[in-house]
Simulated scan of single mutants.
Amino acid sequence: MRPRLFVALGDSLTEGVGDPVGDGWRGWAALLAAGLGPAQAPVEFRNLAVSGAQTYDVLERQLPAALAARPDVASVVVGVNDTLRRTFDIRAVAERLDRVYAALTGQGAVLLTACLPDPGTMLGLPGVLARPLARRQRAVNTVVHALSGRYGAVHLHAAEGDWVADRGMWSADRLHPGERGHRQLALRFHGLLVEAGVAVGPAPGARAELPAPSRSASLWWLATAGTGWVARRCTDLLPQLGVLAVVEVRHRVWGTGVRLDLAASRAVGVALGGLVVADAAADASAGAADVA
């Protein structure tokens, strides 16, 4: 009998960026894996997450490998990178996540999901730039909430709370959790899995082995690696983000900012409604085939 298998899908957050161990990354998923099974029957862990991944990458590249492995537990935490692209489309995000969740749970895997803080707030961007990104992340979180309920996922509400404002939880880049933050995510997931009867091993330790990054470390990251990160986003996102900022300012001046929130909510409703219609059409088609 093979050991239980935990497969993690997603982007740099799940890859473990911000929690260095040796020459690589560890991260919340690896910390969680150690506490899923008893010491005498440890859980096998495979991390398929890749830095920079979007929902498209998870669907087209990571999901086939995950399905081939037939995991007992699978985590899918992704979406922030979608919000940082000029091609952001909440309907496409919803369709991709729906297909990923359906495929994994269809094999009987316990599905783990999470909603996340918006990157504009974490980076401390000016309001006219942060608000459009926050609106996008809220849309992604709403979709993840809805689909998590639909597929019975173990869902972690990580978009808000004390941990978001605690600077010691975050790495020097202010976008990824540091070791303490990764441990916090692992602990919270472990608690939910214990309640669900899935995790039977010891909880991950909360005490960090490394000190939280200093302010000078954050400034050094911005001056070195951070410069490249910003430059890559500039060529893709900033031209559109500039347009979004102009629209944001115009609506604030007119006192009609609520229209932007309503438009985003309608877009989410259309995206989720489209999934319901597609499922109904598929069921009808299958029923017709059975009759034939």
Rank of each mutant, 00 (worst) to 15 (best):
A41W: 09
P71W: 00
A41V: 00
G52S: 06
P38R: 15
V78M: 05
L67K: 03
L48F: 13
G37I: 08
A65I: 00
P38Q: 15
P38S: 14
N47M: 02
N47D: 07
G35F: 05
D82Y: 13
L84A: 10
Q62Y: 02
V77Q: 15
R85L: 15
R61T: 09
L59V: 09
A34S: 08
N81V: 13
A49N: 07
A39V: 12
D82T: 15
R61C: 03
L36W: 08
Y56W: 10
V78E: 10
R70C: 05
A65C: 03
E60W: 06
N47V: 02
V73T: 08
G52K: 04
R70Q: 06
A65K: 04
V78H: 10
G52L: 11
G37M: 08
V43R: 05
V73W: 02
V58M: 14
R70H: 08
R86I: 09
A74H: 03
V58Q: 14
A49T: 06
S51C: 12
A69P: 11
V77H: 15
Q54T: 14
D72Q: 02
G52M: 10
V58E: 13
G79A: 11
R86Q: 11
D72S: 01
Q54D: 08
L67S: 06
V78C: 11
R46F: 11
D72P: 01
E44C: 04
V50I: 10
P71D: 00
L59N: 03
A53H: 01
A39P: 12
A39N: 10
A41G: 07
A49P: 09
L67M: 00
V50D: 03
Q40S: 08
R46S: 14
Q40L: 04
T55E: 03
L48C: 11
V78A: 07
R86S: 15
L32K: 05
Q62W: 01
V50G: 02
A49Q: 09
A68R: 14
R46M: 13
P42E: 13
Q54E: 11
A39G: 12
L48K: 13
S75V: 03
F45L: 15
Y56S: 06
L59M: 04
D72T: 03
S51N: 07
A65H: 01
V80Y: 00
A74E: 00
G79F: 12
E60G: 06
P71G: 00
R70P: 03
Q62E: 01
N81I: 11
R85I: 11
P42S: 09
P64N: 08
Q40N: 06
Q62S: 05
V77A: 15
E44Q: 05
D82I: 12
A34I: 10
A33M: 05
V80D: 00
R85T: 12
P38F: 10
S75T: 05
T83W: 14
Y56G: 06
V76H: 08
P64A: 05
A66N: 14
A69V: 06
G37F: 08
L36Y: 05
L48P: 15
A66Y: 15
R61L: 05
V77S: 14
A41H: 12
D82A: 11
A53D: 00
V76C: 07
L59E: 01
T55S: 07
L63H: 14
S75I: 00
G79V: 08
P64C: 04
A53S: 03
D57Q: 13
N47H: 02
L67R: 02
G52Q: 05
G52R: 01
R61A: 09
S75M: 04
L84H: 02
G35W: 05
E60H: 13
L84N: 04
L32Q: 03
